[in-house]
Design a protein around this nucleic acid. Structure first.
Lengths: 347, 347
DNA sequence: TACGTTGGTTGAACCGATTCAATCGAAGGG
DNA sequence: CCCTTCGATTGAATCGGTTCAACCAACGTA
């Protein structure tokens, strides 16, 4: 139906050589205006579109970067993705978005695909701390920037937010508001962010001194709304007096799921149970009870990571690997504000 | 640093010809087991990864499909994207995600990029009803499936949800609950969904007969949370008696933004103002006041569209263009439930 | 008139995987 | 012992841009 039109067809039509057509495409300033116009006319008449596969094969420089995230359904990652897309687009790169869904298998499959595509670079939030897929990519000469996953490896760029500080801020806030029995609803410790945020939470309790409060960890299989609902059901199943008076969730999706279940069951938030989330996604502020959360500069993370990977691949000589660590910020809303309450015991 | 290893290096190492290596990769059954193993060993020893650009150049069959959406920040589209990614991944295709941000320029740029990549096919929610970018793609022999944008063009596949029916259901519901002065907060009429949903709303009012209620359209520049907030502020700026008693928002992001502003201003939803959204994103149920919304089968839309485009490109001969139209479903929650109220007038 | 310079253009080689006609070797049949 | 058959393997041609040394023409200078 549609016959493929190559640079040779254009050359024939414009009565020039293929070299000249290529020059018009890539260095228009070296070709005489008259010839250039003839070539451009031929291009539009034939509807020619450059075949990027051929170009890439010859030049070795691809025009796409890969982005592997844990969950496209999580607004945190879509905001990061938007940041990546912005800067990548400005640099003329396409973004191949891959969703690992927190599965090591899916992640490996996607990484393999990206390697075959010879992408410029890969931005990845690894499922596993092992970093096996990262190693595979680097062995193949593809630059990698770790997203939201700090590292000490000096051969690697990384953009992250200080999760330990974030976890500590959240729990310190809860303790300061007078909450004493805190449950942290957390994802599998395979996930780096989950571990770091928990460490921060533990730190906060320790710093507050004994007697200030206790922290319990409630593990759920994934960091999404459904898991949050499950966690809520498990808390509701406990006898009222053994329930926590505050819950710190490893991300906002968990918090929203939890909140939904609690509100539906008639539990008053924050009077009976306070909630703090993490990420400060746009929906946190619009929740049934506006959610206290730990804000991360999401788009900035994406933009910075994209800049790093582009710089690394464009000027490998001058590039210095960097570990960018942003500071999180606690945003306090109704879900955890101090309320009139009797202290259960004096210490 | 890392030297590129080609199929020739593998051939040399395994002491076979390049043809044999290619056969091991693509038709392993035709090569003798002993040779096959030698080649496989060489592949892992050298860490060879097939160069997809070269493969694509020769075979002409790419391994990526493009997905152009209006807003990656909208959970509706990320759910669709997830569906697309699922089926595409199963078929061994990468997904290149592009965000047009409702801008014709960005859309054109992305479409050009996808054309150069010679993607297998493109799933697109066009910004404009003109369908100019769609024509451009089809001229280049790239199959296109319209996403969430119905068409009568028999040369095109389309997957959509009946937006007119959805709009009608929403407003019919509001009228049935006794609301009379309805404002529809809507996006620019350039956007197809916006127009269709409004038509449905108008229909509902007309069918209900005169006197049943009035519908006013309040246009906002984009279908996102911020625009919803702006709309809320504009409504609040009106004298109380001229405010609507119900608002139908063209999507849930608008509704959530609006709800947030109203709740913060102390307006009681749904007593003073009822709200109905559209899309039934996961966050709708978790909102300050659980949101009535029109549900669309989001992942199914994505999966269906991906299947269609893959079928169209794999077996163009047998392929029949189809227009799949799913039915929306109204999900009623607190934000629009009938409340004790006096009818302002008897008719 | 000869020579150097400059701006424009040419076309063959190349990137790496795939394909397919040609070749090889071994087994089987007459 | 020769001939056919068939499975396995080979290697050159190919896809479509890019690159670069070579070339050409026109102009300026000695």
């Amino acid at each position: 139906m549609v016959l493929p039109v190559s640079i040779r067809d254009v050359a024939a039509r414009a009565k020039v050589s293929v070299g000249t057509v290529s020059n018009v495409l890539n260095r228009p300033e070296v070709v005489a205006p008259a010839t250039r116009d003839r070539v451009l006319d031929a291009i539009v008449e034939l509807g020619f579109v450059r075949n990027d596969a051929a170009r890439q094969l010859r030049t070795g420089t691809p025009r796409a970067i890969g982005l592997v995230v844990l969950d496209v359904g999580n607004p945190f990652f879509t905001d990061v993705a938007r940041g990546v897309e912005d800067t990548a687009g400005d640099a003329g790169h396409a973004v191949i978005l891959c969703n690992s869904d927190e599965s090591v298998q899916r992640e490996a499959r996607h990484v393999e695909l990206l390697a075959e595509q010879r992408v410029h670079g890969v931005l990845i939030t690894p499922v596993d701390t092992g970093l096996a897929p990262v190693r595979r990519l680097r062995e193949r000469g593809i630059s990698v920037v770790l997203l939201d996953h700090p590292t000490t490896d000096p051969h690697l760029c990384a953009v992250a937010v200080d999760d330990r500080a974030g976890g500590e801020a959240a729990v310190t806030h809860l303790l300061a508001e007078g909450y004493e029995r805190i449950v942290m609803v957390n994802g599998p410790s395979r996930i780096h962010q989950a571990r770091q945020r928990h460490e921060g939470a533990v730190n906060a309790v320790r710093k507050a001194g004994r007697g200030a409060g206790v922290l319990e960890e409630l593990k759920v299989p994934a960091l999404n709304v459904v898991s949050g609902q499950r966690a809520g059901e498990r808390l509701l199943a406990r006898p009222r007096r053994t329930r926590p008076d505050a819950v710190f969730c490893a991300n906002d999706l968990l918090a929203l799921g939890l909140l939904q279940v609690l509100v539906r069951a008639g539990v008053r938030v924050p009077w009976e149970i306070a909630i703090v989330g993490y990420d400060d996604i746009d929906f946190a502020a619009a929740a049934a009870v506006p959610l206290t959360s730990v804000r991360q500069p999401r788009q900035l993370i994406g933009r910075t990571a994209a800049e790093l990977v582009i710089e690394e691949t464009m000027r490998p000589a001058e590039h210095e690997h960097r570990h960018v660590l942003f500071a999180p910020e606690l945003v306090v809303r109704e879900s955890s504000r101090r309320v009139q309450r009797v202290r259960r015991r004096d210490k």
